[in-house]
Design a protein around this nucleic acid. Structure first.
Lengths: 218, 218, 218, 218
DNA sequence: CATGAATGAGGGTTCATTCAT
DNA sequence: TATGAATGAACCCTCATTCAT
């Protein structure tokens, strides 16, 4: 698996490409442990290369993040697509949440990347543009089948996905499954259910929340 | 009102005590705005005293946090007690969650303080010891009435309380109400419900999670 | 000799003041050898203190430069005043140039400081405002006496002062005296002299030249 | 015109030679604008070749400088020769200074190249050996005619040439003419003139001075 | 031989914590 | 005891030079 489509002119030299991959792998590892704020110096040290190399390849941190994101988002998209292929709509929604949370729980970096993806309006729309419609499909199908509450929207799923991904800890790494079960029971359509209060947040409105969620400053 | 029982031998000198209160008030204010990571330097500056004084009084940040907690937990306890006085058990549980979330949403510091409180196993039992039993009571009453799922425990409520408190943003500050509604529907006992998977986390197990939740480093 | 008037509110604490002086002395020494671009790290190392201390005291390099300048400019002003007190006008002008060059030759930092002083329009006008009039006086007196060419202006003196200050080298540290003699013969009024071509540069026009002179980039 | 005699064994391969010329042309251009400190990286980029190539061809910056000098010194020599052909000795000296300064003022690189040329005692004798005698001739002729001070030597002319070449700025690019006029009046023999103090610097002694002049570090 | 990627020392700056006054 | 100055590790980033391709 090469890491995302290279949109540049000509392919990198062999050694540069090797280092690029090395940096990505190392950063992914580090980000998984420490989040996206890991320093370039540490990435370089762990990769066994010079800092300059990291800066040369990814002058802006966001480029590194995006490069990682591009390879990871594909996985998420694939998961969503597989979920959409499930014969049973509820099963599909459930499977998507489970698998997506599994990934995010295993990788703190990924979780933050997804947050940014949703958050930053500019160039990371890929996530929204590709993932969004699939999730919409999952929702509509389940609502049409009468198993999902009719007033749930894609952003509701996104927000709860993020939340659930935070429900983990070394001692009980799977704890989130307990709360996902609770959430799913809440999401399931039931007779006599009152509609949810307030409107679902707009895509755009999730930025601040996601930032808040991880205590970002500026 | 002095802020909590001083466990030291002899009482502080008058001016020291004054400074202690001043620091607490200032830190509370700052933490409400910026979270618990606000620098001692800024606390000191805003309080109009030297940094050294803050360090002398609270050599460990956790002590400051704890001291703040001690004054704030009272409010939470009061809320819980009022909730326990509600004639309807479900109403009581609902009210507790609503009011508690309202407080935490309004005060980023408080939310993180609660997180730490639950998190740090050692000396912050105050919260658990006083709040825990009341929440237990709320739960038991609602379970006895058959409105709350039978396998929900106090820590589940705590964890979800924390989560919900994160569901806010400047644009839709009350958004959490939408997700609280979802959660409550999930918490409500229903015929044919499957029991929740996995065990509820132990009090002690919540530390790492809460740390994770806000992306703390060390 | 305290280092210039402290324009701040209250005096520095004793230890801070000691360090301030230490930094100034060290920086002066270093600047004398290496010019104004010596790094804060090196100043700190040589002074035997932490870098942070240097940054605390002089967050902007220009403040450090100015602080050094303030104590040195006094010396230059004093030199000019003493020169102005000489009974013989030509003697006065000569003495000023000699002494000023002596100082600048001995201290590469001072030379660059003078350059900046002349160059930067903003807060280092002290030099121009205090030194300029005295030099004007020296010139006018010598022109009135008929010994100095009538079309020489203060900026001409400044520019040549700078030039002469560059005429030094370890092997013949006093070489500048040879070229000052040449310059003085050129400056002396003589019968049948043609007026100097072009206008003397304006104070403001000297900036770029001074920058050029020491190869500054931006 | 190949650029100077290649002291190596066998001639460069055709493409290597082409690159060599390309580098020289590019460096000359860049040095004219920015001085001799322009980075190899920028030379390479502007020339459209790799940095490595520049380093291979000119492992030492001084070699590049020397190579450039070799092509430029011819022009200076030509100027000097033309000056020596002037019927009037004083006119000749004047013309040499004017033309030489004009060149150096127009090309920051050339000025610094000349500085280094004079400065580096070892292998850049070309300049001295060819230019030196011509200047000696200019001087002797003018001294014989009684128009030039008898104690001026070639190095004095060189030093002042350098100085004058620094007297320029975007706003008044020709300002040096004002100071050259001053210098010439100083150089002119006059009755009752005192001899210049100190000895003229030896060729070898000019190194440090020239370095100083442009604030070089190592 | 040409390339440009890799290197890593070096300079700049901040800030949590300690310590002299 | 209160102060805020001092500390220095840690991070950021650049760029002159080397070296693998």
């Amino acid at each position: 698996m090469t890491t995302g489509p290279v949109t540049e002119e000509r392919p990198l030299r062999r050694d540069a490409a090797r280092n690029r991959e090395l940096i990505l792998r190392t950063a992914a590892e580090l980000f998984a442990e420490q989040g996206l704020e890991a320093g370039y110096d540490e990435i370089a040290k762990r990769a066994g290369i010079g800092v300059g190399t990291v800066y040369r390849r990814f002058p802006e941190r966001s480029e590194l993040v995006q490069a990682l994101f591009e390879s990871r988002i594909e996985e998420m998209v694939a998961i969503a697509e597989e979920a959409a292929d499930q014969p049973d709509p509820w099963e599909g929604l459930t499977m998507f949440l489970e698998r997506a949370i599994e990934r995010q729980v295993a990788d703190r970096g990924l979780k933050e990347v997804m947050v940014q993806t949703i958050a930053e309006g500019d160039h990371l729309t890929v996530g929204r543009e590709r993932l969004g419609p699939i999730i919409d499909g999952l929702i509509e199908r389940a609502q049409a089948a009468g198993t999902l509450r009719p007033d749930v929207e894609a952003t509701d799923i996104g927000m709860n996905l993020m939340l659930m991904s935070s429900m983990t800890m070394p001692e009980q790494p799977e704890l989130w499954r307990r709360y996902l079960a609770l959430l799913l029971d809440g999401l399931r359509a039931a007779p006599g259910q009152k509609p949810l209060p307030l409107a679902a947040p707009a895509d755009e409105a999730m930025h601040a929340l996601m930032c808040n969620l991880h205590g970002r400053r500026a």
